[in-house]
Design a protein around this nucleic acid. Structure first.
Lengths: 270, 270
DNA sequence: CCTAATTTGTACGTATGTATT
DNA sequence: AAATACATACGTACAAATTAG
């Protein structure tokens, strides 16, 4: 195949099976056909990951279509995560995997936690403790420094808003905070609003959650009103803001008979 | 606000703070401003869910911009899941929630199951059984009809490819199949390839998975080499094809000390 | 059932702005 | 500073789907 280099990046000629412009395809729009051809070229390694696609103007010429049509096609590749487009620079291939993906969409934090509106969060404790070695690693602070630890209980909501049966006990750990926020987090009356603000969708950028089954220790079992060694679903979540900075680590233990976690994954429509 | 009805749907005037066309905004493109204004109108309930947005041509007039610009703006609303656009019909508001979403992306089925390449799947049993009432509901077939049940064990992969310690026991249930596929699934030597083909990314459209903690019964505990009543992470998965037809139900029980499930959710960049 | 009007989809052309090289 | 390349934005025309009558 014909290849050449321009402005420091490697180029290649596009697939030319589109140039048979006399053939009128049944229903597929031109921009879709262009996208398919380019995707085909990428998965067939005619454009390797890291190399640039021909410029839009060049594609127009090669494919004998308007720039609008080319851009519409490139948009598909961009949305599929195959290329990135940068003004002044060009379009660069960033992946050669065909766009087969499944995704779980979570519309809100409440959605993520799946506790539902029929539950009630109650703050049990708020204190400052020296972090253990394991937690230090997870919180990204030196072991021995003081972190803020909150303990909260989530219960069914009764008819009149009072707490019903408890079903989840959560330990929350915060890395060292600014003095103002530290005060608020340690004060039981102001901690909950601050907590909700910190874990709000406007601040959150990424959440990592891990599920495992554990046997409950005696203390936690008592708090959840079950017998010692009952099986429990443990959800460990690490919250990061949009810049990637760690906000908090939360570890929740659930009564297995009252809580389960469901996700729905859908194939991305092409 | 001024409202009117046309072609059976309720309309309202758009926010007019964009009409001050003499004000040149610093950096925000016009299509973005139009999108923001429309989103604002939707969350402020000026357009209620289920009602139609003004036609593109009308928006052009109201906002004094070209149709291209309006369409670019509407595209943002569509990608955010706030509206659907239908040729010949119009754009209808389908949600008034601000577009805050998190997504988990799973690139493949292996990714979904998180067993890794260091594991080995071994078929234990394959038989046909009358479905219980609960399974009948889940499989969408009449209770009493025969379904195919497979039992498989997933183990660590040893140095030479042999099975190491087992860590997951999976029960698979298939609704009544065509005779040909039924034979293959019941034959231990051909079942695995068929299974993998059925749960391939080309056929799968949707997966629903639920996690909960359970205490292992004596039989399963023995198969996983742990003591009875050990806590176990149970993953129940229902697989559907792209048309929404149920393919199979799988229930996996895991050794809690050898398996946990992690998902990473990222905020969708706007 | 058919026709006309409406509305979005596709596609062309052109010009200018802005970031990168 | 100049050339290159993508982004934004104007305009026009026709196609295809839907809806109204």
């Amino acid at each position: 195949m014909n290849t050449y280099t321009k402005r420091g990046v490697h180029f290649a000629e596009t697939s030319d099976f589109l140039n048979c412009s006399s053939v009128t395809l049944p229903k597929i729009p031109r921009y879709r056909a262009i996208a398919d051809a380019l995707i085909n070229d990428i998965v067939k390694k005619k454009f390797s990951v890291g190399s640039a696609l021909p410029a839009e103007a060049e594609l127009c010429e090669q494919l004998k279509v308007s720039r609008h049509t080319v851009r519409e096609g490139l948009r598909i590749l961009e949305e599929s995560g195959l290329i990135v487009r940068r003004q002044g620079s060009g379009s660069v291939v960033i992946s050669d995997k065909p766009p087969v993906r499944y995704r779980q969409v979570v519309d809100s934090i409440e959605d993520l936690h799946q506790y539902g509106k029929e539950s009630r969060l109650q703050l049990l404790k708020a204190n400052e403790t020296p972090v253990s070695q394991v937690m230090a690693a997870r919180l990204g602070c030196a072991s021995g420094t003081f972190c803020i630890e909150l303990q909260a209980l989530r219960s069914e909501r009764g008819e009149h808003g009072e707490a019903g049966r408890p079903f989840a006990l959560t330990h929350l750990y915060f890395p060292p905070q600014t003095p103002g926020r530290r005060e608020k987090l340690l004060n039981p009356s102001s901690a909950l609003p601050v907590l909700l603000a910190l874990l709000d969708s406007r601040t959150l950028g990424r959440i990592e959650q891990t599920f495992e089954a554990v046997a409950l220790d005696a203390v936690t079992a008592a708090q959840l009103n079950v017998t010692k060694n009952s099986p429990s679903l443990r959800a460990s979540r690490t919250y990061y803001d949009r810049k990637g900075k760690l906000i908090a680590v939360a570890i929740s233990l659930h009564r297995s008979d009252m809580f389960r976690y469901t996700t729905i994954l859908k194939h991305e429509s092409s």
